[in-house]
C-alpha cells in the first residue's frame, strides 16, 4: 500500500485530518448513516413522519420469515445470481485466457479496452437494447426466419432467459477483467516447462492455469453475484410478468406499496446475505487488489 512514508512530526492522524475529514464526513452522511438508519427503521411499525405514532416491532422480520413468498423470491434471486455468475465464468474465462495468452501488444490492449468499454457505459440503456433483439418481430426473430427454411417464432422477450441474457451481457466484462489480470500474471515459461515435461493441454489447464487464476475467478464471481442478487431494473425491463425477484419486491415497497419499514427489513436481510458472501470472498479479493 501507499504511505510507508513517515516524516517525523508530519505524521499522525491529527495532521491527516484536515484532508481526510471532508471526504469521510460525506461518506458518513450519505452512506454509513443511511445504512444504519435503514436497520433502525426496519424495526419500526411506521415511519416517524407527519406525526404518526410508531413503536418498535419485529413484525417486519416476522413477515419475511413467515410468508413463504419472500423466502421464495430471495431464493429465486440467489439462483439468478448463481446462474448469471456461471454463464459469466463459462463465457468470460476463455476470453480472458485468449486475451492474456494469444493476443500480443497493441491489439491486445485495444481488444481489452473494447471488452470492458460497454461495462462502463450506461447499464440501463444496454438492458433496453436487448429488447430490440429479443422481442417478437425483433432482430433475432427476423434474422432467423430469413435464414431458416421453415417459419419459427422467436419471442424471448419477457421471459427468464431474457433476464439471464441481459444480465450476462451486463456483467461478463467484469469476469474477463478480473480473470485477465490473474492470467496475465502467469509466466509463459511455466506453461512451456509443464508442456515440455509431458503434460497435456488439459492437464496444464486443470493443474496449473486454473489454480493459479483462481483468485481472479473468485473475485469476478463475487463482484457479479452480489449486484445480480440485488438487481431489479433488469428483470423489470426484460422479464415482464416473469421478472418478479427479491429486488423488484424491495423496489415495490418503496415506490408502489409505500411500506418502507418492510422495505427496510427486506433490504437489510439482503445486505446481510451480501455481507456474508463478501466476507467469504474477501481473503481472495484482497489478494487480487
Amino acid at each position: 500500500m501507499a504511505g510507508q512514508v513517515v516524516t517525523g512530526s508530519r505524521s499522525g492522524l491529527r495532521s491527516a485530518l484536515p484532508l481526510l475529514l471532508p471526504a469521510y464526513l460525506w461518506l458518513t452522511v450519505a452512506i454509513f448513516l443511511p445504512l444504519s438508519a435503514m436497520v433502525f427503521f426496519s424495526f419500526m411499525t411506521e415511519l416517524p413522519l407527519s406525526g404518526r405514532a410508531w413503536s418498535f416491532t419485529l413484525d417486519n422480520y416476522a413477515t419475511f420469515f413467515s410468508q413463504g413468498l419472500y423466502w421464495t423470491l430471495l431464493l429465486a434471486s440467489l439462483r439468478l445470481g448463481l446462474e448469471v455468475t456461471l454463464w459469466c465464468v463459462v463465457i468470460g474465462y476463455p476470453a480472458a485466457y485468449v486475451l492474456a495468452k494469444v493476443f500480443r501488444g497493441r491489439s491486445r490492449e485495444a481488444i481489452f479496452l473494447l471488452v470492458i468499454l460497454p461495462f462502463w457505459s450506461n447499464g440501463l440503456v444496454r438492458i433496453f437494447s436487448w429488447a430490440m433483439v429479443l422481442r417478437e418481430g425483433g432482430i433475432l426473430d427476423t434474422a432467423l426466419n430469413a435464414v431458416l427454411p421453415f417459419k419459427i417464432n422467436i419471442d424471448l422477450m419477457y421471459s427468464y432467459p431474457a433476464v439471464i441474457i441481459g444480465l450476462v451481457h451486463s456483467y461478463v466484462p467484469y469476469m474477463v477483467l478480473t480473470c485477465y489480470l490473474t492470467l496475465q500474471a502467469i509466466d509463459d515459461s511455466l506453461i512451456e516447462a509443464g508442456r515440455s515435461l509431458g503434460a497435456s493441454r488439459l492437464q496444464m489447464l486443470k493443474r496449473v492455469i486454473i489454480p493459479l487464476s483462481m483468485p481472479g475467478l473468485v473475485a469476478g464471481a463475487a463482484l457479479i453475484f452480489v449486484p445480480v442478487v440485488g438487481s431489479f431494473m433488469e428483470p423489470r425491463i426484460l422479464g415482464g410478468r416473469t421478472g418478479t425477484f427479491y429486488g423488484t419486491v424491495i423496489e415495490d415497497q418503496f415506490v408502489a406499496v409505500f411500506n418502507w419499514p418492510l422495505g427496510a427489513a427486506l433490504s437489510f436481510i439482503l445486505l446481510a446475505v451480501v455481507l456474508v458472501i463478501l466476507a467469504l470472498a474477501s481473503p481472495v479479493l484482497k489478494r487480487v487488489a
Binding site: Y24, I31, P34, A37, L49, P227, G230, E251, S267, V274
Partner: peptide, 26 residues
Amino acid sequence: LQALLFPPIAIPWLITGTAMLIFFFG
C-alpha cells in the same frame, strides 16, 4: 479507513439507494 471505501462500491445500489431515501427523508 481504507477498508471503509469498499462497502459503497460493493453493496448493491438497491440497498444504498433505499437506505439513502429513508435517511434523507428522516
